[in-house]
Amino acid sequence: MRHLMSPLDFTTDELYDLMRLADDIRENRQKYAKACEGKTLATCFYEPSTRTRLSFEAAMLNLGGNVLGFASADSSSAAKGESVSDTIRVISGYADICAIRHPKEGAPLVATSHSGIPVINAGDGGHQHPTQTLTDLYTIRSLRGEIGGLTIGLCGDLKFGRTVHSLINALVRYPDIRFILISPPELVVPSYIRDDVLTARGIPFTEVKSLEDAMPELDILYMTRVQRERFFNEEDYIRMKDFYILDKSKMELARENMLVLHPLPRVNEISVEVDEDPRAAYFTQAHNGVFIRMALILTLLKEAGTL
């Protein structure tokens, strides 16, 4: 049974096929309107989410399928102490595919050990968020034509930001990628990314504190939110949350064709005045998430022999 736990579960060739399928879905919506008729997606979200959950649900509904699930641990049996293993065993009998988000890192992997249906990691703690990465890669490819030969600035919470970890893991497989990691010293990327991925593969990267200094060099600026829910200490969160704010004056330092991406939701880190800038691509990115998730659902269900 094939699952999606990390963006690395798909080869770059398989990702290319997935993106081509997403392109076809975007251009021929009607052709896929009944592709998953009679099939059900379970969305098991143990922590709050708007975009990811609705994006999954929109994807399945656009494919003519059904959706069931829960939107927080409080409204599920997890509040009664049910384990992830038991939940997925039960869900396997109710649905054909499952997207699971959990605050504990590795929870979706546990689910795969007991699941009879494909499981998609929809975010596990500060660890991985592979479908956001598919969305990011798809957006970069859609807007830049190809993935490669890019200087990518990742800015904000690089310690707990799972989208950042997943994206770095995925991008290092493409040619001529260089990273500028922009964060306060307290929120630098964890060692399993810096040492095991970047250094081990000889990928050029620098770690800096100043967003302004990095701006002129960037082809892509990937902004992230400082996530309150990842901090054990409210004081630390308040000290960090407004460390970076992208505004018009900083955008003036950037190249004309630089793209600003953000996994959303944003809080203060991108000023609303930037929304009108043609380089602001984060809402396009959010819309792309539906097409790539449609392609993913179709692919996993086909590989499972369900379609």
């Binding site: 384990s83 992830v84 293993s85 959990h102 504990k104 590795g106 546990v110 596990d124 095991d196």
Partner: peptide, 26 residues
């Protein structure tokens, strides 16, 4: 933040991530 801190009956599994530096990861 690891699932092993809450899920009962889960085997604790570590894999050799870096042989040279003897690094094991959950």
């Amino acid at each position: 933040r690891c699932i092993t801190s809450v899920e009962q009956g889960l085997p604790q599994i570590f894999y050799l991530a870096d042989e040279k530096n003897e690094v094991y990861r959950c």
